[in-house]
Each structure stands twice: as C-alpha cells, then as structure tokens.
C-alpha cells in the first residue's frame, strides 16, 4: 500500500477551505497550519498564467525528516504515511530543518506536528479532511498500488509534477498540470 495525493492545479481556486478544514478536523491551533496554499503567477498584463497549489507534507518515500530524527518520533506508518509520535518527540527541530518543503511546524505543546494524511480518517474509510471538503473536488487521494484508486486513475490520465524532485525525497504529493 502506498498512499498518495494529487491536487489539480487547473481546478484549485486557492480558496483555502482545505486549510481551515484541516485546522478544525485536526485541532491545529490558530496561528499554525498543516497545509497551505501557494499562488504562482507569471507574465505581463494581459499575458498571464497562474498556478494555484494546495500544499502539505509530501509523505516522501525518501524522507529526510524521518532520517534525521534522533528518537524515531518521525516515522513511516501504514502506506508510507510519515507521522510524528508526540510522545517520542523531543522538539529538537531537526526534522523541521530537514524538510525542503517546510511542511512541519513546532506545535505549541512542544512536539512537532504536520500533515498526517488524516490517517485517523482513512483508517475509518473516510477521505482526508482537506480532500473531502474541497469545493472544486481538486484533491484526489488514494493508494498508488491500487490501479483503480482515485489517485492512480487521475495520474494515468493527466500530466503531473512533484515539487523539488531534485531534492531526492520522492514526494507523494502530485500536482496535476
């Protein structure tokens, strides 16, 4: 099993519903976030192009955050989901420094926190909160090993990219372009 997510930049409107849904679902404290939205715009008026991306942890296959964690708090869970165990985390910040995507943040309770792919939901047969709320239905989630999963199907159909592939992290957050 290999969980992955794909975000359709052609449909994402940058509304940030995913961000606030993540916040309420996962009790992310105000002032912090597990995901965020980026807008990239290029050109000169009126020849313009825009890409909007909803971003979060890439659940990298080759995750530097897991590698550099001195206590094993950062670890791989089912389906390659990268998790932090708050009871093991000493809050050293190494994993934060190691993530090329700045996907982690120090939780005010001391431990480090990040996107969990809503593992508590997917274990219960639900979609991640961000995917289930997105009004444009532009977030696809599923098992890459299952050729019929949402994510496999859409990645077969569409062109896509990942972020900073040259960092060698093998990210599992895909962007449909």
């Amino acid at each position: 099993m290999r969980y992955a997510m794909a975000v359709d930049t052609k449909k994402c409107v940058g509304c940030s519903d995913c961000v606030v849904a993540c916040q309420t679902e996962n009790n992310v404290p105000i002032g912090y976030c597990r995901e965020w939205v980026v807008e990239v715009m290029a050109g000169t008026y009126p020849q313009l192009e825009m890409e909007i991306r909803s971003e979060r942890c890439n659940h990298c296959v080759n995750a530097p955050c897991v590698r550099c964690c001195p206590t094993g708090a950062s670890h791989f869970s089912d389906g390659g989901i990268v998790l932090v165990d708050p009871k093991k985390c000493i809050g050293c910040g190494a994993c934060i420094a190691s993530c090329p995507y700045d996907a982690r943040y120090p939780h005010p309770d001391g431990h480090v926190d990040k996107c969990t792919f809503c593992i508590h939901r997917i274990k219960n047969g639900l979609e991640p909160a961000c995917a289930s709320v997105c009004p444009t239905k532009c977030i696809y989630f599923g098992d890459m090993d299952d050729p019929n999963s949402n994510v496999s199907v859409v990645l077969k159909k569409r062109k896509f990219k990942t972020l900073i592939p040259e960092a060698g992290t093998d990210p599992q957050l895909y962007f449909l372009i």
Binding site: G14, S16, V19, G31, Y32, C33, E35, W36, V37, V38, E39, V40, M41, A42, G43, T44, I52, G93, I96, A97, D102, R104, Y105, P106
Partner: peptide
C-alpha cells in the same frame, strides 16, 4: 514579472518567511 505568494497558511513566524526554529 513572476509572483509567488502564500495565499494562506504558513503565517507561523517559526517557519515563515524563512525558517526560524533555531536561535
């Protein structure tokens, strides 16, 4: 012109506008 902005999220001063976890 190329413009790249955070539309939302990432307002955490420990991570943005650049990493600031180690003092």
């Amino acid at each position: 012109m190329k413009e790249e902005i955070f539309v939302s999220g990432r307002m955490n001063h420990l991570v943005d506008p650049h990493l600031n976890i180690w003092h």
